[in-house]
């Protein structure tokens, strides 16, 4: 793709870079325990936890880096970090 003069870049284009490959640990979500507080989604540094219409969450494993903040902060232990088999 040719350079735009000045090196101006289109928005949101890091989405081509799937950081899911960085993971060692993967979040395992137990919806039964989830109290729908939305904290994990708010905290995720990689925008990889989205709230559904019912306020549960879905994980985007294309980008999740496996940091474990969601699991560490979940007030109802609904997320567990497990070693990812590759």
């Amino acid at each position: 793709m040719k350079i735009i003069i000045g090196g101006v870049v289109e928005p949101g284009t890091t989405r081509v870079n799937k950081t899911g490959g960085w993971r060692n640990f993967k979040p395992l979500y137990n919806q039964d325990k989830c109290i729908k507080c939305g904290l994990c989604s708010l905290l995720c540094p990689d925008c990889s936890i989205e709230e559904t219409e019912e306020k549960y969450v879905v994980f985007d494993f294309d980008f999740c880096k496996g940091c474990g903040i969601c699991a560490n902060e979940c007030p109802s232990d609904a997320i567990e970090m497990v070693l990812e088999e590759k």
């Binding site: 350079i3 003069i5 000045g6 090196g7 101006v8 870049v9 289109e10 928005p11």
Partner: peptide, 19 residues
Amino acid sequence: PMTFGAFADPTTYTEFRYL
């Protein structure tokens, strides 16, 4: 909403100077 001032690594920097 465009981004101004991105960082260009060795694969693209030369072309900026050329331009």
